[in-house]
Amino acid sequence: MPSTTKVRVFVSLKNGVLDPQGRAITHAIEGLGFSGVTDVRAGRMFELEVDASVTDAALDEMASKLLANMVIENYRIERVA
């Protein structure tokens, strides 16, 4: 079996896109009695197990074509050593 490495893809909302879920989470944090949190932006993170044949360009395409919706989201790819 070929050895695989881990890749993390972080997807977050673009600046200026309203995030109703993040706002609700902000209120929930407040409700727990914590103060000082002025905003929360909710995103998601994907962990991919990939073998050596998977190029950065291919990862980029996976992220922009499927994992993120480029109308409202940005992504960042991180190869985990």
Binding site: P20, N69, V71
Partner: peptide, 17 residues
Amino acid sequence: LTESGLLPGVLMRNAGI
């Protein structure tokens, strides 16, 4: 249709959650 690119834009979570 928006996800497939046949129509522009995206449908996000309702503003009121």
